[in-house]
């Protein structure tokens, strides 16, 4: 049994992607917020907003999409706030997760569950 501990076999693709970003660092909470609708009738265009005062970058993931990565926002010297809004595709009901990299190199996490009525990755 000891050989199973620490193996990423059961981790989701999103957890793998986050681990790659953070190098496995602990994820704090509270400094980053993600705003998304509770229910999205159309998964093709779901409005989201991320905000993290003191962040140098915010990366957004969607754990139920075929590819979990959604977008990365890097803030430059003339960014007035460490926040941005966009519209994303969600294949199904799932969690949308924001990981903020702070100025001191630490990472913060926030997530929002979005119920999707019509998926946004249809073939």
């Amino acid at each position: 049994l000891s050989s199973l501990t620490g193996l990423p076999a059961f981790a989701s693709m999103m957890d793998d992607a986050i681990a790659k970003l953070t190098g496995g660092a602990d994820l704090g909470e509270g400094a980053v917020t993600i705003t998304a609708p509770e229910i999205a009738e159309n998964g093709n265009t779901v409005p989201i907003e991320v905000s993290a005062p003191g962040a140098v970058a915010i990366t957004v993931y969607a754990d139920g999409n075929p590819v979990p990565n959604v977008a990365t926002f890097k803030f430059g010297p003339l960014a007035a706030s460490r926040s941005a809004s966009t519209r994303i595709r969600l294949a199904t009901t799932q969690n949308v997760v924001a990981i903020a990299q702070m100025e001191d190199g630490s990472f913060q996490k926030a997530s929002a569950n979005v119920k999707v009525t019509i998926g946004g990755c249809g073939g």
Binding site: V46, A62, N69, A71, A79, T86, I88, R89
Partner: peptide, 15 residues
């Protein structure tokens, strides 16, 4: 000439 924001887009960004 000074950066405000630099965004990496994946296919999950809407049309």
């Amino acid at each position: 000439g000074q950066n405000v924001i630099d965004v990496t887009l994946e296919p999950a960004i809407s049309t």
